[in-house]
């Protein structure tokens, strides 16, 4: 059975419906990448999973539990973490404090998780006393990832992690996504840089106009001439 399965999801902002009857399924340990043109509802998809907007139809099941409509502040308890695209660090808090805030919902000792996060992002350990607002865009992204990892999530939702970064930093980010995935975390990621993202994806979902367009393995989608022409820029 899939870790995350979405069936016939219809959702939007208030009265405005953006997603119509979308399906998606991810198995444990997979990287799933959602691609598609602007306004296709990619980020909306993640927000719907993370309980940030009104779901008017369909269901979201995670790890055997129906999480449809559960508000975002409760989802940490289900071990789902979300990294928004912008403003994803507490700028005036230090790097370490940012990570501690990630573990806010946990009452147990988190020092081993902190060590684990510093293992994945060694740079962060050197900068742990620095306010996150003083870091570069790529480094902030790392802090944001680290913050999300503090609940030891089973599923992490990444909203365009490479947006606004230089091409050099993009590959670093993708590299870290793979590293996170290797520790057993399932990843659902929205990306503009569809080619690179699909290259590391186990599964790819092409959304267009708020509906499923293509669903296949990442490699198959890359090889699909139809997809390449319409969505990957030739």
């Amino acid at each position: 059975m899939s870790l995350l399965s979405i069936d016939g999801l219809t959702a939007g902002y208030g009265q405005m419906t953006i997603l119509r009857d979308v399906d998606m399924a991810l198995d444990e340990g997979e990287i799933g990448v959602i691609v598609g043109p602007n306004g296709a509802g990619k980020s909306t998809m993640l927000k719907a999973i993370f309980g940030m907007l009104t779901v008017t139809g369909g269901s979201i099941t995670f790890d055997g539990t129906d999480i449809t409509g559960i508000r975002s502040e409760k989802l940490a308890g289900h071990r789902i973490a979300y990294v928004p695209q912008e403003n994803n660090v507490f700028a005036s808090l230090t790097v370490e404090e940012n990570l501690e805030m990630g573990a806010y919902t946990r009452r147990d000792d988190v020092s081993h998780v902190l060590d684990h996060v510093y293992e994945i992002f060694p740079d962060m350990k050197d900068k742990r006393r620095q306010p996150a607002g003083e870091l570069s865009g790529g480094q902030r992204q790392m802090v944001a990832f680290g913050r999300a990892l503090m609940i030891e999530p089973k599923l992490i939702l990444l909203d365009e992690p490479t947006a606004g970064l230089s091409p050099m930093f993009m590959s670093v980010i993708f590299d870290r996504v793979i590293a996170i995935n290797r520790t057993g975390v399932t990843v659902a990621m929205v990306e503009q840089n569809a080619k690179q993202a699909l290259a590391i994806a186990h599964k790819g979902f092409v959304l267009a106009g708020g509906q499923n367009s293509y669903t296949d393995t990442g490699q198959n989608l890359l090889d699909n001439p139809e997809v390449a022409r319409s969505f990957l820029g030739g």
Partner: peptide, 8 residues
């Protein structure tokens, strides 16, 4: 916003 996402 981030605080509520984080579960604070």
């Amino acid at each position: 916003d981030l605080a509520s996402i984080t579960g604070i």
